[in-house]
Design a protein around this nucleic acid. Structure first.
Lengths: 241, 241
DNA sequence: AAGTGGTCTAGACCACCCG
DNA sequence: GGGTGGTCTAGACCACTTT
């Protein structure tokens, strides 16, 4: 085992593997106390692993009865993913075209979203995102210049979030997104290689670091015929209507 | 206090209230051991409450330093909500028009989504959803007839999920959703009182019970000018890129 | 009655940050 | 070095389901 891995992560992986390899939906898992004894850990540690698995929808628990494998394809719960991760998980090779960096005043909307004055400079990154070489999305990203000095010199082939983490020690951990349906104007349609007035998803995103501070304000236009948003949502377990 | 309330829920509410009433973003909360002593509970119980608050983005924790209030408006993390809850949280009064129930064979797509044979009967509920009396969404909902016998007799003014819970003891706890952008055909546009070929969000939803069993397959068409999807997404805390 | 998950306690040790 | 959060243990009692 990894020396930096926690015990509950080990337990979690062990249980995940058993679910994948041996267990069918609605089959009962060993009792918590049993798992604890088998793996020589405390029951609290087992429960912590099981809680994560329950949140992700892999298992369900019935008091007095047991813990069972959930039915249905396992979709990861709503997680923040980059365009590249997103595309790869859908089986496409992500790419970028026509990347342009500029530094300009934030303006009203962007300034408001980022919590800075409209006059303060932001780094603006515009690019066309591709999947297997096909244009799929127009992205317009703005970051406060004070947070990321020198970003406009380029990403050096890395992903924006990798650069934020490695070069600026900024970890994006949360994003507030709004998803609209729109029709494309002629210029946008041309860039995405679809007929004018085709439908598209417009996603605006405010990315935040662990402290909740806005880091990025982005607007993305996705071709409706090639892209849809997928998400799993759940009620807090143990809560009523 | 409620006799059915857990201690960690009490602690959570206590901390939430302090955040609302006394603390500003980036202010430090009392140490975990301090809160535990103040409230006469164990530190583990405090930590459980803090973990929930961290997941919901209200606080962030820095090892060796402390626990702090997050910045930015607090949006509830992605939670499964009914149309009615959704509209109320946006400040509108939800309603329904033109409710029709039918019982028909599931068909290919619905049968597949619900995991039943295409020939098996489903209860189909079609309705126009309104916000403050304005048509905002066309909804087409299908449930296996075997799960909800008699549902086609009506909801009696209650919400679908309330009826599922109270009359059929089915608790919907999870849903897998897909969000598309489309343009409306003339009939749909007429029903939603917008020009033909207006954009719309098409949301398909498979609702599941705690065991992961499909309970409902629904397709909703939302007017793009009146409705947008909002969601907060986050990376698992403590994980890297 | 026995077994299961749900909650809570008391205490330990570690890793990390800060004065 | 002292304080903070992060992890883990051992054990207790409760609520619930099953036999």
């Amino acid at each position: 085992m990894d020396s930096t891995t926690t015990k509950h992560a080990t337990v979690r992986h062990y249980i995940e593997q058993r679910i994948r390899d041996e267990l069918s939906p609605h089959e009962r898992l060993p009792a918590e106390r049993m798992i604890a004894e088998d793996l020589q850990v405390n029951r609290v540690t087992v429960r912590r692993a099981l809680e994560e698995l329950e949140r992700d929808g892999l298992i369900y628990r019935v008091q007095g009865s047991g813990t069972f494998v959930s039915e249905g394809r396992i979709r990861k719960s709503t997680e923040f993913t980059s365009f590249s991760e997103d595309m790869r998980s859908r089986g496409f090779e992500p790419g970028s075209m026509d990347e342009t960096f500029t530094i300009e005043p934030a303006g009203m909307a962007t300034g408001y979203a980022l919590g800075v004055s409209p006059a303060s400079p932001v780094v603006r990154l515009r690019r066309t995102r591709t999947a297997d070489g096909r244009a799929i999305c127009l992205e317009d990203s703005a970051l406060p210049e004070s947070l990321v000095p020198g970003l406009a010199d380029g990403l050096g082939g890395l992903s924006l979030y990798t650069v934020l983490k490695d070069r600026y020690a900024i970890r994006v951990v949360r994003a507030d997104q709004t998803i609209h349906a729109v029709v494309l104007n002629p210029a946008q349609a041309h860039a995405l290689e679809v007929p004018e007035f085709s439908p598209a998803l417009r996603v605006t995103r405010i990315s935040r670091d662990a402290q909740g501070r806005p880091v990025e304000f982005a607007e993305s236009l996705y071709r409706a015929d090639l892209y849809a948003f997928e998400l799993s949502v759940s009620r807090a377990p143990g809560r009523g209507q």
